[in-house]
Design a binder for these strands. Structure first.
Lengths: 335, 335
DNA sequence: CTGAAAGCGCTTACAG
DNA sequence: CTGAAAGCGCTTACAG
């Protein structure tokens, strides 16, 4: 393993100057095709590999995007991360990723370290932190940063926010259950007072209030475990809800399995609508009705918005909400 | 946003020389505590941030690990990725991630780009590719590279391989079902002739042969969809298996939901054991017996092995298999 | 279209 | 323990 060839080696090999090689690397139009070809051949011949550290030092973009996610064990965020990463890769950007696990300290650390690595931009699904020092640091760094899925810093003029239209989603779900004749509709899951919860519950509140129906909340972590526990509890209640909207499919899936243990079949004994429409929802039994968020497309869109900011300089709008749709399946229908 | 301060600015501010600042950055013992403190204060005061591109150019380690995963939508790999990333983060390393989606071209591209970024090491769960040129490139780069979960390149002396003891796992599962009195035990899922499939089926083959029992395979993609389809098909068969070992929990979960549609309850009407023990398996209904691989711990162990290689220079053994265990739950018991 | 020169912000010997 | 100097591999004007 003798040392890596540099552009000087390439230049010698191709019989041109160092600058010419650099111009080829930049895809400059100022190099004639034959020269370019010769240089490119030389690169292959001697096994040249571009040194981004050197380029970065001289001011070139690192082509590195920092992706900071609050919970990478949740399939919703995972699918988002995978999708955004692949979109970046397709455009020649690499993704540095970190799971903060909802820990503000980890979040601060990984952001700092990504700045050191010279990331060209950030996409952050932030954790709820008591202080905004991480964002202050980001602001000082001047690195383009998008907040996605969770708006933690309200300065969306600096940190544009992109998410999904959760309010419309919960409106769709509630309307659906009301039209089906449900009288007692409960909302299950979501930590109280969290912005996401407020959003996902807002359409429900609005329609329930309009109909003069009682709001029934079961707040809690949006996990399978919580869903399962609530289903078991609900099974023992005297006046059980006849309709359930879940904060997330994970909660709904947990409820389906909790209900299965108590011989309650969603779609027959109770109507259920989930939220997110993860892959599993179309495969479980009974099939779960859900609000499709299409995070995969959302990931692509977000990536593209960021790339436009980076490359064309057009900053994303301060707040962008992508549409969602209701997918009706067995769990909210008569079987 | 005037330009970022450099070590020269720090030096001026702290009243020392540039080299001293650099030594502080290296955590060198050759700097006395008071000097170090002064330098560190200066850094905070003027908002200095370390420039890794510059350091990298001069030969410092980038502190960047390349993580290349064949399928980031699969919770098994996701959990692994999250765990290994967090372990690296704890040790001050950042992780560049890429999902290859089982596409050798994408794999080649992302590896090349990570090399350009100067990653200090690679962890690869490779996709099966017809040619090994990606690995050849890796070898030439001289960057420490571990293969995990899938051994695609057989040169494990160069690319140490770490995985889980799948053979022992399938032996455990088969033994368990045999002891429970199962007569017809099927193995469901896994693409034929794939090394992983061969491993996960090997213990089954061994014990079935020893008992003189017929091997029954249902080969296919290890997905929920495949599991569901097989369950439905199996429900219509005359001589249905009385025991099933699944290639993965995903397959088993698909089967549970397929069986639910046909009123077959695993644990009562058929015995099932999954493989991987993902979180969901302890939450679904019926609870799924499974071979616990503990990918989370595996991720930590792999990360640590790589770090030892990088920092202490002790290369991991050529092939390392971490133990697995059988977790018995409802799906393989009489209810 | 191509060449010679300066410099990005660090690290690394080498003196002192 | 600290200072002066060279150089890592690029990019970027600036001439020609």
């Amino acid at each position: 393993m003798n040392k890596r060839p540099t552009i000087l080696d390439v230049a010698r090999h191709a019989g041109v100057s160092k600058s010419t090689v650099s111009l080829v690397l930049q895809n400059s139009a100022a190099v004639k095709a034959s020269t370019r070809a010769a240089v490119e051949k030389a690169m292959v011949d001697i096994g040249y590999v571009y040194n981004r550290s050197a380029a970065g030092l001289r001011g070139a973009s690192s082509g590195l995007i920092g992706l900071v996610i609050n919970d990478l064990r949740n399939p919703f965020f995972t699918e988002f991360a995978a999708s955004i990463q692949m979109t970046f890769a397709r455009k020649g950007f690499s993704t540095v990723i970190a799971n903060t696990d909802e820990n503000p300290d980890i979040q601060a650390t990984v952001i700092a370290s990504m700045i050191e690595h010279g990331v060209s931009a950030f996409v952050i699904s932030p954790t709820y932190a008591p202080d905004l020092s991480a964002f202050d640091r980001l602001e000082k760094s001047g690195i383009p940063t998008m907040q996605v899925l969770r708006q933690v810093d309200e300065r969306t003029d600096i940190f544009p926010f992109a998410s999904l239209d959760y309010m419309a989603g919960s409106r769709l779900a509630t309307k659906h259950l009301l039209e089906l004749g449900c009288k007692r509709i409960a909302f299950v899951g979501g930590l109280e007072d969290r912005p996401v919860t407020l959003e996902r519950v807002s359409g429900y509140n609005e329609l329930m209030d309009a109909e003069g129906r009682e709001r029934i909340y079961y707040h809690g972590r949006p996990s399978r475990t919580f869903g399962r526990d609530i289903a078991r509890r609900m099974a023992r209640e005297d006046t059980r809800p006849d309709g359930v909207i879940c904060f997330s499919d994970l909660v709904a899936l947990g409820m389906i399995s909790g209900f299965a243990e108590t011989d309650i079949l969603p779609g027959k004994d109770i109507r259920m609508v989930g939220f997110d429409d993860i892959e599993e929802s179309s495969l479980c039994f009974p099939r779960l009705s859900s609000i499709r968020c299409d995070v995969s497309r959302f990931g692509e869109n977000s990536a593209q918005a960021l790339l436009n900011w980076l490359e064309q300089g057009d900053k994303p709008e301060a707040t962008k909400r992508y549409p969602v749709e209701l997918i009706v399946r067995q769990s909210s229908m008569r079987l």
